[in-house]
Design a protein around this nucleic acid. Structure first.
Lengths: 345, 345
DNA sequence: GTTAGCACTCTCGTTTGATGAGTGCTAACA
DNA sequence: TGTTAGCACTCATCAAACGAGAGTGCTAAC
């Protein structure tokens, strides 16, 4: 059996109506709402075919049909109007991104909020992976007696500070020596690389200043073991899930929210599979607790390099066209924003 | 009518049984479970009195009784066994706080997690109010051309960095001048005070270096307007609320979780009303969305000064004795931990 | 190939009735 | 006078029964 044009029209009608109403859609409804010029009976015949093809299914006899995962997939790939976002949304995004927020973290979390607002779904935004950015420069500043502020500047421009114990007998000059060693050895290496390969070089270099060694190593450890080197995940609009009729079930909600609390899971959802906007529908998802969710995601860039991704999570019954349009546009404007922000340098 | 000893015993029995089972408790149940040496009929008579006194109420005729807010209050104030925590819990807290975590933010968020684990309730922890801590010292470090890293050290030891635009023609010496002005003028003043009173002084001081003025002011603005100067609120175990039978209602959950997203509301809940552990029961709470919740909170200190508070939120039917014990012990160990941590200076 | 008609299925909301827990009242009892 | 047993009454809860409505699949006619 083949998909002909009428079958496509009917499938599109089913998907669109189900997305809008969340109710199984029957042959009569289609005949009434969508002008296909055929009677309900004909539609019923076609629907039986579509069911055989695996694109739609019946929750129970005598209910209408709902799209299967395969049905949504076919819809997204072949039937959907090209994703386009309303000028309203476009304007809103432009107004919001025009508010120049300097700190990168705020840009990201702001993005998450905006994304969930626009889509009425839950947004997931993955921030830049700090640990991956190469080491740039290190400074020491006076703090309390016996402690110093270590300021580390990464090559991507991120700045972090840590308070380190240095012992009371360490002078400013000695600190400066340590900083110099670090700056020479580490410049341009990612912290992950440092951990693996360069640690012993530094170790041997610093044996010359024996009394600083232990402290220097522990300082480094403080940076390397910092969990926050992991890319951070921002969520927005988690409550929107409660508005979806498919999540009127307490156990589902509990599992979902539990999953929301584990960054690791969320990261897997967003892992970029391709260029541009990617769509993962229902069971295509590897993670059990998101089997009846769909994810639309895309990556954003800084200076041409992919540094993170954004996405929305919703029930499989979501407005794919609208969401894809918004996610697409948001990554573009986020990339622009970051690039422009950097350009100021 | 007066409370006599038997009435007290019965009220205590009702509260305890209801806390344990979440079911309205009847006269027969009390006679069976608690050995009061009287028949159900007698208990019924007493219960009628207790109802008249406003300590218990009936959800409907022919159901058992449940404690009213006033009943819980009487229980907490007069009937409850003194809050005592199990040695298990005590050990767990001690093991957990022994893991020396250096960053204050992590200590706080770790506290929130632990608190919710121990109580099976939702924990709310209010971090120190950064903005309140007086300004201490300021440094500038080189960054990109035209930008510098401004490192601000507060008197409480907090370190923050901000990237500021300085214009291409500003030299390191000029930056140093600005830092000196700021350090002299602001040392020891809270940022809030600075905003109100000292801004124009700095302004007039800096007119001498006209070309730095605008940038200097915007730098200051960046620090002063920083939202993160607000005390941050950490939540733990929000999902625990879903396990409470009183929150098996979707609208309630939605309202509750919506409230969780607004830091302002949560802060009001924790606002310290007295020394030591304070208990707010149901309707005693001013905030509408928490009318059927109780809050147990206490403040923690750094060097004798109250800098934040922790608390747990649960249904009015919660184990007050246990929760109060845990909250009390946690504030103490948190205060110890912070004080010890600081002592290292 | 399309459509009308019809019997059939299944969900959903309502009704009904039985069950059981719990009360309040009264009268008997110590 | 306080306590208890007995009893009628109330009300939520659960399950079964039922009707209405929506939708299908099949058949026969167009």
């Amino acid at each position: 059996m083949q998909m002909d044009e009428r079958k496509q029209k009917i499938l599109r009608a089913i998907v669109q109506d189900y997305i809008a109403t969340a109710e199984p859609v029957g042959s009569r409804t289609i005949a009434r709402k969508f002008n296909l010029g055929v009677s309900p009976a004909t539609i019923r015949n076609e629907m039986a075919d579509l069911e055989e093809l695996g694109f739609i299914e019946q929750p129970h006899t005598s209910a209408g049909r709902i799209p299967s995962d395969a049905g949504y997939r076919y819809y997204v790939d072949c039937l959907m109007d090209t994703p386009k976002l309303s000028t309203e949304d476009k304007n809103l995004i432009e107004i919001e991104t025009a508010k120049r927020i300097s700190e990168i973290e705020e840009v990201i979390s702001h993005t998450a909020k905006l994304l969930s607002q626009l889509t009425s779904l839950t947004s997931i935004v993955m921030g830049p992976q700090k640990g991956r950015s190469p080491f740039g420069q290190m400074y020491f500043l006076p703090y309390q007696p016996g402690q110093a502020i270590m300021v580390v500047v990464k090559e991507n421009g991120a700045v972090e500070n840590h308070i380190v114990d240095i012992g009371n007998h360490v002078t400013a000059e000695e600190l400066q020596q340590v900083a110099t060693v670090f700056n020479n050895k580490l410049k341009g290496y990612s912290l992950a690389q440092v951990k693996k390969t360069l640690l012993h070089e530094i170790y041997s270099e610093l044996t010359k200043q024996r009394h600083l060694l232990d402290n220097a190593l522990s300082m480094l450890g403080a940076v390397l073991d910092d969990d926050r080197n992991e890319e951070k995940v921002y969520l927005g609009g988690t409550l929107n899930m409660l508005n979806q009729p498919e999540f009127r079930d307490f156990d589902k909600v509990k599992n979902l929210f539990r999953a929301f609390e584990e960054d690791g899971r969320l990261k897997k959802l967003l892992y970029p599979t391709q260029e541009g906007v990617s769509v993962t529908i229902g069971g295509e998802n590897k993670l059990e607790e998101f089997q009846d969710c769909s994810v639309i995601s895309a990556t954003y860039r800084l200076n041409g390099e992919v540094i993170g991704s954004i996405g929305v999570l919703g029930p499989t019954r979501m407005d794919y066209a609208k969401s894809m349009g918004i996610v697409d546009f948001m990554t573009r404007s986020l990339t622009d924003l970051l690039t422009k922000g950097r350009k100021r340098t």
